[in-house]
């Protein structure tokens, strides 16, 4: 178990900056999600911690020990790859035992720990199978068992669930979280799936163009994204811009959003309320209902506001009484106005 810290990491590929002065601390025993669009540098950061990417400048610490000059094989990490990277010439048990065999663990000890690891990922009966005889979810769990059996200091997961279909992914998220809790290992994982990041992590970091934009506990970052990129990337948000006045933010159509002191404000679609009559909410504006989309328990309404689209999420029951189209009011409570610093 270990605390991981990176300081001022810089890595360039030609003209592109994959990592641009990234400084971040990954708490001991935590589950840290690195989130960002493709090309944001999140995988580069993970590979720099693993040792596959050598940053031009900056430092990497595991347990306060500088590891920039320590090769991958001596860093004491466990890694799960996007395609699982199971050794096709070995059985499941041999795959899991590989890291132990390298460490010259005695045969009895090896057997016991492989059995333990397979037990942990609930594949105790699959030791003799070859990887090609397993389903995607089973392979994922073998990769997990192989990575943790050596008791690494840090567990690194590179888009661990992206190759699975949606239903399986949700199961595996729960499974991953359980395993991580059970062994309490410091875990860093990379994903482009914001929902996955919010579900799994107890801290997240958001990267864009090689820079760390924001980090913190998921709820904190979600509730107060501070900048429009984080607001729209992590969850959905409608951004309104205008001019700051004494009473609040004056939008282009003359609406005053009270209490806002920044030129942009974001509102999450689930916090918007629709009504035909003018609502009793301090933040409200008028728009035209364009489309109602039925989605089972939840529904979506798309509004037209001065040629732009406003998305409203809600229970389908809330939308049932609305007309198919026509003028409607959109309102939200002042505490749901997210003021944007950037």
């Amino acid at each position: 178990m270990a605390m991981v810290r990176v300081e001022h990491l810089v890595k360039t590929y030609g003209a592109a900056r994959a990592l641009d002065d990234v400084t971040l601390e990954f708490p001991d025993g935590g589950f840290f999600g690195l989130l960002g669009p493709s090309g944001s540098g999140k995988t580069t950061l993970l590979r720099a911690i693993a040792g596959f990417v050598l940053p031009e400048t900056g430092r990497v610490f595991i347990d306060d020990e500088p590891v920039e000059n320590v090769p991958v094989e001596k860093r004491g990490i466990g890694m799960v790859f996007q395609n699982y990277a199971l050794f096709p010439n070995m059985t499941v048990a041999e795959n899991v035992a590989f890291g132990l065999a390298v460490r010259k663990v005695t045969e009895a000890e090896k057997k016991r720990r492989v059995a333990e690891a397979l037990e942990l990922v609930q594949l105790a009966a699959f030791g003799a199978r070859k990887p090609h005889q397993l389903s995607g979810g089973q392979r994922q769990r073998v990769a997990m068992a192989r990575a943790i059996v050596t008791q690494p200091r840090v567990l690194l997961l590179d888009e661990p669930l992206s190759a699975l279909d949606k239903a399986l992914r949700v199961d595996m998220q729960i499974e991953l979280k359980r395993i991580q809790r059970e062994i309490g290992i410091t875990t860093i994982f990379v994903t482009h799936d914001q929902e996955e990041a919010l579900t799994l992590s107890d801290r997240i970091g958001i990267l864009k163009d090689g820079r760390l934009i924001r980090h913190g506990p998921p709820r904190e970052v979600y509730d107060d994204p501070q900048d429009s990129f984080t607001a729209t990337f992590l969850g959905d948000a409608r951004i309104f811009s205008g001019t700051v006045e004494a009473g609040g933010l004056r939008l282009a159509d003359g609406t005053l959003v009270p209490g806002v002191r920044t030129p942009t404000v974001a509102v999450r679609p689930e916090n918007l309320h629709l009504s035909v009559a003018e609502p009793d909410l301090p933040c409200r504006l008028q728009a035209r209902l364009g489309q109602k989309i039925f989605g089972g328990a939840l529904g979506t309404c798309l509004l037209d506001w001065r040629g732009e689209v406003i998305k409203v999420l809600g229970r389908d029951a809330d939308f049932r009484d609305l007309p198919e189209s026509g003028p409607v009011w959109v309102g939200w409570r002042p505490e749901h106005s997210i003021q944007m610093s950037g």
């Binding site: 693993a50 596959f52 090769p71 991958v72 094989e73 001596k74 004491g76 990490i77 466990g78 890694m79 790859f81 996007q82 395609n83 990277a85 199971l86 050794f87 096709p88 590989f98 890291g99 390298v102 460490r103 192989r146 990575a147 050596t150 690194l156």
Partner: peptide, 11 residues
């Protein structure tokens, strides 16, 4: 990634 996986396992 197979080679990388082996390296990450200490080989």
């Amino acid at each position: 990634s197979l080679i990388e996986a082996a390296r990450s396992l200490g080989a």
